[in-house]
Write a protein that binds this DNA or RNA. Structure first.
Length: 274
DNA sequence: AGCGTCACCCGGACGC
DNA sequence: TGCGTCCGGGTGACGC
């Protein structure tokens, strides 16, 4: 479930050396892979041949992608739900879920651990083709209240799946969407075009506040994946089915919206359009 | 084009 | 205890 704040935290940790090694400046000496489908593009042989010898120049984030600009092209990693990036000594044996390992020239290695095999690795000289399929960054300048309202007003889809559509807005996942909708007092099944400007503006504000708080807390640690973050302690609705709403005390309900588990307060987030 | 549904995976929770 | 079954998470393919 790495969403924008979790991916941002991992990018910062790798960039700034908080995991014991600064990744920018590292030269890729070799790469191993024991599950070919993890390499989304190009084919494994080309991936290996083209990337070996390149130096990683930076670690960035776009949407939920980790972006590693290299000397000749760009390496991208999408963690999907159970992915993580580990740094370890060259000689440490591969863990059972470390399907792609980048061996650096100085003796360290960067490992893509991916328990449920949903994550994907990309190498391209044209990352813009990937970025072009994504909506704006929720914390960027393009995403304004006016932009949000004008786009919402053209869509009939339910607000929650639309917020999670990466081609609409890049970075929201199930957790931060449920939390932002609760803070904005908007029911997850409202049709997007029924939101007033005021509601859209409020939701816009809480999307940004929720993500910023998530980043400040270094993301959420849930299930067995612990990354050091503690946003899980700030959840008001997510994974709190039956517990009292922190705002009004009403029991939090869980429903399915677009096949996704959805948590909301029936009192704070009424379904009827005001 | 927009929208909904399903497959992809597997560790953990749950039921018996 | 051990076994079987279900669940969930993000995304792309697919159908309407």
């Amino acid at each position: 479930m790495p969403e924008l704040p979790e991916v941002e935290t991992i990018a910062r940790n790798l960039r700034e050396g908080r995991l014991g090694l600064q990744v920018p400046g590292q030269k890729i000496a070799d790469i191993s892979n024991d599950w070919r489908r993890q390499i989304a593009m190009p084919d494994w042989e080309s991936f290996h041949e083209q990337l070996c010898g390149q130096t990683i120049l930076d670690v960035q984030r776009r949407g939920k992608y980790l972006v590693f600009p290299c000397s000749k092209g760009t390496l991208l990693i999408h963690l999907r739900m159970s992915g993580d990036i580990l740094l370890a000594d060259h000689h440490q044996p591969a863990g059972g879920h470390e399907h792609t390992i980048f061996y650096f020239a100085d003796g360290w290695s960067m490992r893509f651990s991916n328990t449920r095999k949903f994550g994907r690795v990309f190498y391209t000289t044209n990352p813009a083709a990937i970025y072009d399929k994504l909506g704006p960054e929720p914390l960027g300048d393009i995403f304004t209240a006016n932009w949000f309202y004008s786009r919402l007003s053209r869509r009939k889809r339910k607000i929650k799946p639309l917020m999670m559509d990466q081609s609409f807005l890049a970075g929201m996942g199930n957790i931060y969407t449920d939390e932002a909708l609760h803070r904005a007092h908007i029911h997850p099944e409202r049709n997007a075009d029924t939101l007033s400007f005021k509601e859209a503006e409020t939701l816009w504000q809480y999307i940004r506040e929720t993500l910023e708080e998530g980043i400040q807390r270094q993301g959420a640690s849930i299930d067995w994946i612990y990354r050091g973050g503690d946003f899980q302690n700030a959840f008001q609705v997510y994974h709190r089915t039956g517990l009292p709403c922190p705002t009004c005390g009403t029991a939090i309900e869980r429903i399915l919206v677009g096949q996704r588990s959805t948590h909301f307060c029936p009192a704070c987030q009424p379904e009827t359009v005001p």
